[in-house]
Nucleic acid binder design. Structure first.
Lengths: 118, 118
DNA sequence: TATATTGGTATCCAAAAGTATAGCAGATTC
DNA sequence: GAATCTGCTATACTTTTGGATACCAATATA
């Protein structure tokens, strides 16, 4: 036995888990983050491209959510000084890895449908 | 080649994926569903037990979210006519399987923390 | 008799999230 | 000269979500 009791270790550990889950929830939060990430999984996109691809989103929300995702380390924003200006949004490594989460979400969702819609 | 074009099949398939993801999002929606599910993963609980265990929740929200989870096939509600009445909430099979989703959420969250907090 | 227990509901209010609409600057196309 | 493209921002509004508080009936306990 070390200097930290087993109970303490469990608390520490589950605390980490809660933080981790919260981080993941931040990526899922709101109506538009998933559509944005989904769209970026197929490759980098410009602002207007995203706006056109994601039906119903307003530039205000797109801008806000992209900022959120950038702050959370899910996308990067790159400005090229072309004319007119080009701004490119792209998933980070972590953002790409998020596909794993989406995959189990799909998997669970499909199984759940199968098991409840009998 | 069958009577459905490949493009149609892809659309059909990705449509299913969207539904599946939405189903999963329904389980994650709101401030309290995850704490409730988390608590029920350790076994069935009564209303007041959940209320005591989940710090800060009001009976109004607990009642509402439990109904939601029941409708979505995540928990079952069983009433025993003891005195006073006993109401037991328990995860369904699908609800238990949801742990898989939580597990990857934790996994991604931990990795994300590692890779961003360098 | 007063209080606590069970599992909730009713009502009202505040905060958060999202929508609608308009606009900007600087250049290009019609 | 008007409209269109870029990538946004500002303002005002509506909708959704969640919180606070009080209350219910029936019974057991102090």
């Amino acid at each position: 036995m070390g200097r930290i009791s087993q109970l303490e270790q469990i608390k520490l550990c589950s605390g980490q888990f809660v933080l981790a889950i919260n981080d993941t929830m931040n990526v899922l939060h709101g109506k538009w983050k998933l559509p944005i990430i989904g769209s970026l999984l197929y490759g980098k996109k410009r602002f207007k491209e995203l706006e056109r691809e994601i039906a119903g989103i307003t530039p205000r929300m797109l801008s806000k959510e992209l900022k959120d995702l950038e702050i959370n380390g899910i996308v990067t924003r790159t400005v090229y000084d072309s004319i007119p200006v080009t701004v490119e949004y792209k998933l980070t490594r972590s953002g790409e890895c998020f596909k794993k989460v989406l995959d189990v979400m799909v998997e669970w969702g499909l199984q759940h449908r199968k098991s409840t819609m009998v």
